[in-house]
Amino acid sequence: MNTKVSIAGVEFKNPVMTASGTFGSGMEYGEFVDLNRLGAVVTKGVANVPWPGNPTPRIAEVYGGMLNAIGLQNPGIDVFIERDLPFLKQYDTRVIVNVCGKTMEEYLEVVERLADTDVDMLEINVSCPNVKEGAIAFGQKAEALFAITSRVKRAARQPVIMKLSPNVTDITEMARAAEAAGADAISLINTLTGMKIDVERRQFVLANRTGGLSGPAIRPVAVRMVWQCANAVAIPIIGMGGIATAEDALEFLMAGATAVAVGAMNFVNPYATIEVAEGIEAYLRRHGIEDIREIIGCVK
């Protein structure tokens, strides 16, 4: 039985990854998860310098999901290369670095710093809803997305995944712009912008007022968008949004994703990634499917 999938020439032992921002740099979950069992670890967003992130509260629970407004707190590329990358390279898993920035130059600086490292792929975060400047501005206009994708592609030594925002009128327009600019793959969806109000205190729950909605509540939206993009572009898609179980992951694969990422559910169940990977294998066995690629995009 084959569970291997390949994206832009990079082979993954299985299609299960971690969604950026929900798994730290892998270290935090090392106690729960054998990282060797994952298709890839996708790191928390890394910027050119340390970012302090937003004030607290940064987290609010909502029905079937959560809002976060972390604001991409991260220790910066130097610490990532010195501390986090050597940790990840001890494991037999692919390493995908999520890259964030406020300006084109900041993105490019991180991309260039990573050029000489042995990370396997880059995921460009142009879709974080919690950072005021830059970031999402690149992800909500097709022209801006095209521009940053082409610049990053020219600078990058590794294949490039553009992570798309669902907070747009037509996500296929964004997918097409990324593809036209040379992206090797796209990943979707990032969080949906949301808000929660504490009615007792008559205040926003989050210090940032708005936050990104994730968790099972967003899954049907994510599956739909993956399916739309799969029908719009030829480049591979990494699908994510509220995946909790193997069945959820299979929905994304059948909608056309080549790989999937487990996000917020890592917080709910630290073993979620492994359970999803094992559950997919069990499904393939149960249905006598020899190769996972048979089910990718099987629902037309």
Binding site: G21, E31, T56, I59
Partner: peptide, 8 residues
């Protein structure tokens, strides 16, 4: 467990 950076 220190991953989400929510409770800083």
């Amino acid at each position: 467990v220190g991953a989400c950076l929510g409770c800083v």
